[in-house]
Each structure stands twice: as structure tokens, then as C-alpha cells.
Amino acid sequence: MNEHSTEISVPARHQALTELNAGIAAACVRLGVGEADCLRLQLLAEELFINTIDHGLQGNSDSIVRLVVGHDDGGLTLRYEDEAPAFNPFLPPATTDGDDSIGGLGLALLAGMSLTQHYRREGERNIVEISLQAP
């Protein structure tokens, strides 16, 4: 991904969110990422992680979620991979007539807090790559 990156892997379980955030915090320290950018990475990863568990996998799973946090002169990158059914978080949500539910706000957050967003499916894995502005 980047010349300077750190990989974090956790099971797709709500209780692993603490481990995920700790891994991102440790990666930020190793990569020299400032606190504000680190918090932004944690928020983006948390949104993807909770959506994977609650919507993609329909609950806790032993499926592995893998993140790669990268940092270089171009800025920060987050690569997020899961084994949930195919889902592109950057497409508008499908709605039905009379549907006034609140969903999709977190996905709008992803787009609003990042410079670029890409989704692809490789085999049985969703891969989301997000670039954040250079610090």
C-alpha cells in the first residue's frame, strides 16, 4: 500500500472494537500521525467495522477484518477489508417509497471526512480504500 504502513487484524466482533482502536492508535504513534488525524482514522474504521458486523455479517463473527494504515508525503490512507457479502459503501442507499428511516449517515461521514474513496471486491473480500488529506 504505502512505504510506511501497519497492518491490524481483528475478529468481526463488537468487543474487538477496543483492540481495533488500540491498534490504530499504536500505528499512528509508529507512523508519526498526529492525534487529530489518528482520531479521524479511528472514527472511519469504527464506522466500517460496525457496519460490517451489524449489516454485512448480521452479527458477531469469527471472520477476520483487516486494516492497513499508511502514511507518506501524500497523506494518510486506510485500507479496510472484510468477508461480508459484497457491498459498496459509496453508492447511494436503495430506498423505497415511504421509507423515512435514517440510514446511511455514517457512510456520508466516510465520504465527507476523506479525500478519495474506492471500493472493489476481490474474491470473497470487500476492500475499501480511503485517502485522507495530507497533514
Rank of each mutant, 00 (worst) to 15 (best):
M1P: 02
E3V: 09
E3G: 10
H4G: 07
H4N: 15
I8H: 04
I8L: 10
S9L: 06
E19S: 09
L20K: 03
L20D: 02
L20M: 15
I24M: 04
V33C: 03
V33K: 00
G34Q: 11
G34S: 13
E35R: 13
A36F: 08
A36S: 11
D37W: 02
L39M: 10
L39T: 06
L44S: 01
A45D: 06
F49I: 00
N51M: 06
N51V: 08
D54R: 13
H55A: 07
H55Q: 14
G56S: 05
L57G: 01
L57F: 06
Q58V: 11
G59C: 12
G59A: 10
N60C: 04
N60K: 02
S61Q: 05
I64Y: 03
V65A: 03
V68H: 07
V68P: 03
V69N: 00
D72R: 06
D73C: 11
L76V: 02
L76G: 00
L78K: 02
L78F: 04
E81H: 08
D82T: 03
D82G: 05
D82P: 01
A86F: 06
A86Y: 09
A86V: 13
F87M: 05
N88H: 04
N88C: 04
P92I: 02
A94Q: 09
T96F: 07
D97K: 12
D97W: 09
D97N: 09
D99R: 00
D100L: 08
S101C: 12
I102R: 13
I102A: 13
I102K: 09
G104K: 02
G104L: 01
L109F: 13
G112R: 10
S114F: 05
L115K: 15
H118P: 01
H118W: 06
R120A: 09
E122W: 04
N126I: 07
N126L: 06
I127G: 00
I127K: 01
I127N: 01
L132C: 02
A134F: 07
